[in-house]
Every structure is written in C-alpha cells, then in structure tokens.
Design a protein around this nucleic acid. Sequence first.
DNA 1: CGATCAGTTGAGAATGGTCAAATTCGGTGG
DNA 2: CCACCGAATTTGACCATTCTCAACTGATCG
Lengths: 243, 243
Amino acid sequence: MLILQSPLTRKLSAFVTLSDSDLETLARFHRRRRSFLSGHEVIHEGQKTQSAFILAEGWACSYKILPDGDRQIVDIQIPGDFLGLRSVLFRTTDHSVEAVTPIEASEVLASDILNGFATSPRLATAVLWAASRDEAMVVEHLVNLGRRSAEERMAHFLLELGARLRLIGISDKTGFACPLTQYHLADALGLSAVHVNRVLRHLREEGLVTFQKGRVVFDDFAGLVTLAGFDTDYLDQEGPLLS
Amino acid sequence: MLILQSPLTRKLSAFVTLSDSDLETLARFHRRRRSFLSGHEVIHEGQKTQSAFILAEGWACSYKILPDGDRQIVDIQIPGDFLGLRSVLFRTTDHSVEAVTPIEASEVLASDILNGFATSPRLATAVLWAASRDEAMVVEHLVNLGRRSAEERMAHFLLELGARLRLIGISDKTGFACPLTQYHLADALGLSAVHVNRVLRHLREEGLVTFQKGRVVFDDFAGLVTLAGFDTDYLDQEGPLLS
DNA sequence: CGATCAGTTGAGAATGGTCAAATTCGGTGG
DNA sequence: CCACCGAATTTGACCATTCTCAACTGATCG
C-alpha cells in the first residue's frame, strides 16, 4: 500500500472497496493539516464556508446555539469523522463545531470534494454512505431526546459513544477515556448540568456505569444496554457493500 | 423538455443543473409506480431492503418505535422527498415509514441508484445534497426536542412544514392543508397527545396559529416566527450551486 | 493563594405526563 | 335524512420528572 491509511480511509474502505485512484483522490483531501486548541470554534454557524475538515486526532462536537443562548450539541465527532461536510453543499453553515480536546484535522476545500466526486463516483457513494451513517446517529439521538427519560438518554449516549470508539480501537466493553464535561453531556442530552450530575450519581449507585475523572466505566454492560434499549444495528458494518 | 418533471427532478434541479443524460438516469428512477393506503406501513424497520421510494403524491412520515411501544416521528415527507434512502446504503432499514394520506410513490431499486451514481456523478452530488438538506431538517428537529418548550416546538414545526410546502407550491403565508392528527404531532414533537391539544389551544387563544379541521392557519406569522426562533436558512436555496 | 472551572447537593417551582371522562365529527347503513 | 359508530379532539384533576436558584466543595493554575 503506497498511501498511508487515515482514519477516514479506513472507515470508507469498510464500506466500499476503493481503487488506487480512489485512494489517491482521497489522499488529496489530507494535504492541509490544521491544529486547534481545546475549546476553539473550528466552524462557526452562519459562516460562508468553502471547506470542511476531516478529524484526525482528538474529539470535537457540533452544535447549535438558540436565540436565548442555550446550546444543543447535535453530535460528537471522533477521529475519521467529517466536520462540517454538510456546509460544503450549502452556501452557509447551519451549525458550529468546537474542539473538545486539542485536535488535528485536514481542511478539505469544497472544490476538492466536488471534483473528487466527479473523478470517482465510488468515492461519492462512499461519502454518501458516511453521511448516511452520521445521519442515522443523529436520528437515534433525536429519538433519545424525544422519547427517552434522562437516565435512558444518558445510558444510550454513553453506549453509543463506546461503540463508535470501539470501531476505531480506542474503547472496549469495560469503558473508555472521555474528555467530555458534565456540561457537554447536558448540552448533548437536552438536560441541565445539575440533572446530569444527579443522573450520573444514580447510574453509579445502581452499579451500571461510572463516569469520573474523564473515564467512563461500564460496571454492568448488559444492564445498561437493557435500560437504554440500545441496538447497534445502525452502527454495524459487516464488510464492504460495494466491492 | 422531453422528460416529464417529477417533484424530485424539480427539487434537484434547483441545486445542480442536470444534463439530458442526468435527467434520463433520473427518469429511470420513476418506472415502478406504487400506491399505498393511508396508514399503511411502506417501509418496516429491520427489513432487509433493496429499494427506496420517491414520494410523488401525498404525505408520509418516518419514525422509530421504542421497546416500550412509544413512537418518535423523525421526519415528515412530502412530494419530492425520498422514503428510506438511507436504507439503500445499509443492509437493513433503521426506521419505518407510514403513509399519512393515501400516497403515490416510485420504487427505486438500490442497484438503480448505485448504477445511476456511477453513470452520473453530478446526480450523485445532487442526491447527496438532498440527503444533506434532509439531515439539516432532522438536526433542526433535534434541537427542537432538546432545547425548546412545547409551544416553541409546535410553532417551529408548523412553520417548517409551511416553508417546505411553499417550496413545492402547496402552501402560502396564510396557511396550508394539513392531514396530520394531533397524535402525529405528539409523536413528532415528543409530547403527549393531551399536551399537544393544550398547546394548540393556547396558540390559538394567543392569536398565533389555528390548527383545526385539517387546516393550519397562520394568524400572526411574524409573532410565530419570533416565538419559534425560526430561521429559514437551512431550507433556502438561491439558484444552482453547480451549473 | 486567590481565581476559576467542574462537580455536588438541597429546596422549591414548573413544565409536561397520566388517567379518565366527555364531546365533536366524518362517515355508513338503514 | 337520521341514528349510530369509531376515531379524533377536548377538558379536568392529579402527579412526576426535570428545572432553577443557590450554595458549597475540590482541583488546577498562574
């Protein structure tokens, strides 16, 4: 293999078998490396964006701010995920993205992406697949907010994060390192930070999960899955669909 | 114009200028016409799907059912929208779709879509754009559920529906015909049907919107926009991006 | 050693849920 | 045309989940 594997390449290759020329096009997406400090706003809502990013290292989150200043985190991004892909196809960005930890990301120009699609339809399909997978997660998140109790939301959220991290090899069934604060959790789950704290305490007392000092520990994985009604189908991937 | 304009063609053409050959590929998506009765489940969660649908006539909604029987409606579909597009790229469907009214839809095989993308990268880009636009709506919906009060949710939901219907010419600023029941609203907004009723009464008494006998009337459009914090940016489209 | 930020806990209030019982409305059959 | 049926809507009373405000702890950092 001539081309170094980025987390994104690994992810897309799980879906479609990419030819050397596809891989080259994809590699061209990784030329402009950028670093951001923790807490920095990588993408700002309302921006006239000409580029997106591919996250290589660290965690980010995408969110919207409401008129009253409340924040809703829409999704968490981990290495291999796009930041602001949707913005490329619209004239302005409809959400913001913040670095949760210090991050490393490749900036990809809109033109690179659109030209890449024209050169490699297979790559276009792969990116559509990645976007669909992201959307599936957003949909699960939406169901979470609409119809689950605070505890179920928390359980589901932590399980989903764990499952995603396992796919990129930085988590196992026992737990994972998690740089999110309780404020992040509150903004993601549509709760107040105070209630997040109470929910975490209760889950800990029930012996289900412990989230302390930047680490999530699944004390009773099966119990948590039951509580959350968690189903991994929307994340699973059993070998390339297009080969 | 040789090829009859479907609602989908019109929608995609607003984003990219499609060549005759693109249009032909797109027309091939419309060969298998299907009808479904109101209330019929068009797509079933967990299905091993080989096809999606393009809605030509009527309203549908996509939703998920939780273990306890609760339902969360993720999105409403109107003519020109895809039903189950995401399922095509996964092995199984992660949501269900129900006909809200009697509907007419074209069944599109997964292979037609994937082959279409290979033939016409421009079409692939257009479909990715349409999928992104859907995702933007799901994201707004998510923010709605996470951070807005029941009244704001209702206001926002009705305004968004109105804006979408206006794009396809079946609504104006005064209101629109709406076949949804209060149960649909409850399932979409993450509320109980009882509370939906109270919220509607309150909005009516405040002189903001009236939803009765299958019709939504915007009594005070500007007031409603303010209440909802509604912003149409994520729906707007000012001429083709790719031409 | 203050300052700041994340986390913790308590008390009281509010938003929205549940249960139960009308009431209205659009058909449908006689 | 009318009586009736089931579905959709409406209303009341009570309850519970979650929020807000406020105070306090503990760790980290210049």
